[in-house]
Amino acid sequence: MRDDQRRTSTPESLPEVITRYLKAHRAHDTPTAVTAFTREATVIDDGHTYEGTEAIEGWLGRSATEFTYTSHLVSAQQADATHYIATLHLEGDFPGGTIDLRYQFTLRDDLIEHLVIEP
């Protein structure tokens, strides 16, 4: 995904599966968040890789309880029909207290197949 190919999107124009995941994750609703992923999905977060819905469910459960934080969608971009980037601003009791994270989504069959979360 080259920067010159990305199109800025509004949060409302993100695919339903991404907004469902983001809302469920923000609400600590792990069962709903997991439904946004393909069975063999991969998530990369904080240097760790989680493969398959079982591993992703465990990751979501831990991330929901490890720190207390709020998140706000700052921007959204569409690279092509299956690649989206959502930037979220987080504030909470984690080290540093604030951070902007890029959620890089790859979709397949209207579900999340790959998600990379990084600063």
Rank of each mutant, 00 (worst) to 15 (best):
M1A: 14
R2S: 15
R2L: 15
R6G: 10
R7E: 13
S9G: 13
P11Y: 12
P11K: 15
S13C: 08
L14I: 02
P15R: 07
V17D: 03
V17G: 01
T19S: 08
R20M: 05
R20F: 02
K23H: 09
A24V: 08
H25W: 15
T30S: 04
P31A: 02
P31V: 02
P31I: 03
T32I: 05
A33Q: 03
V34Y: 02
A36M: 01
F37V: 01
F37N: 01
V43S: 12
I44R: 14
I44Q: 15
D45P: 13
D46G: 13
G47D: 04
H48L: 14
T49F: 06
G52D: 03
G52F: 08
E54I: 09
A55E: 06
A55K: 03
A55F: 02
W59A: 07
W59H: 14
T65M: 08
T65S: 14
F67G: 03
F67C: 04
T68E: 11
Y69R: 01
T70G: 05
L73E: 05
L73V: 10
L73D: 05
L73K: 02
L73Y: 04
L73R: 08
L73Q: 12
V74Q: 08
S75E: 11
A76V: 07
A76F: 08
Q77E: 14
Q78Y: 05
D80C: 03
A81W: 09
H83E: 03
Y84P: 01
I85M: 07
A86T: 06
L88T: 08
F94K: 06
P95M: 05
G97C: 04
T98R: 10
Q104Y: 05
L107A: 00
L107N: 00
L107D: 01
L107H: 00
L107F: 04
D110N: 07
L111D: 02
H114V: 04
H114T: 10
L115Q: 00
V116E: 15
